[in-house]
Nucleic acid binder design. Structure first.
Lengths: 142, 142
DNA sequence: CTATTAATGCAAATGATTTGCATTTGCATA
DNA sequence: TATGCAAATGCAAATCATTTGCATTAATAG
């Protein structure tokens, strides 16, 4: 029975399923879809239902323990722990590999734009799509 | 019967529906969803089916007469004419109003990132979300 | 004018996500 | 420790944007 160390979960009732989801997300180096999390939790043994994963994700989002990290071109959402540093991704449209981009060109822009428009910016989306080196090479052969 | 002036449609068979869709998009100052286009075309008179609009959008995308301009937080896609200049939007999460941003911080970045990673960047997504001045004021009263 | 095939309409399928509802379970408290 | 309530869960059904199968209509090449 793992003990989680999330201050933000203080008010919450204990839940094995939620712990499993968090465990999966802790031990991952890139954002995951709900379906992937579901698969990984089940693979470990635990029976869990897909809708439960969705509800856990929803709760973790509200508690800001996780954030939506990116959206694939097919609109599948990917999530990552908030404690991981903020960054954006380059997403290969072929193999779906995600490469973190260490630059966030947006934060400084937000202020400028916010000031000049009176728009209260609460979030932003920034993703690059393309082909990773691997997939580009594969295609050369065809 | 309007005559369209799209070189790119040369190979295509004439279609009143497609003309209507293009007409709607021409006379619009912000990106539209498929549902909105559908509504506007029908409002004018013409009977058209939603799936036809989807197919027309698909074709216009392929011909690069339109592009996907943004995606709302609920994943609805919005489209605009390619001939309109490339820009991004600030989207009010309350009233859905879209305010174009005249800066695209990404194009110059793309080269840098492309060079350093070997990633062949073909597209990007950049959107700001927040509350517009109007909606922020309304909320103050509550 | 006629054959070919793109364009269309309609209903059903998809796929991610959400929700209703009955059941289980954590946990505070009697 | 027993009891009750609310949160967590499972399952199936509902949603919602988008796609697709299939039969029909219509544009246009020859």
């Amino acid at each position: 029975m793992m003990k989680n160390h999330y201050e933000k979960l203080k008010g919450c009732r204990a839940s094995k399923n939620r712990d499993e989801v968090l465990f999966v997300m802790e031990n991952q180096n890139c954002p995951l879809s709900v379906e992937e999390i579901y698969g990984k939790v089940k693979a470990k043994n635990s029976s869990i239902s897909l809708s439960t994963v969705y509800r856990i994700i929803d709760k973790l989002l509200n508690l800001e323990i996780i954030r939506k990290a990116a959206t694939l071109e097919d609109n599948t959402s990917l999530y990552e722990l908030t404690k991981d540093s903020h960054h954006h991704y380059m997403i290969c449209t072929k193999c779906k590999k995600m490469i973190p981009i260490d630059i966030c060109p947006i934060e400084e822009l937000e202020h400028k734009i916010s000031d000049s428009t009176g728009f209260n910016i609460t979030g932003h989306k920034f993703e690059l799509y393309g082909e990773c080196k691997n997939c580009a090479q594969k295609q050369d052969r065809s």
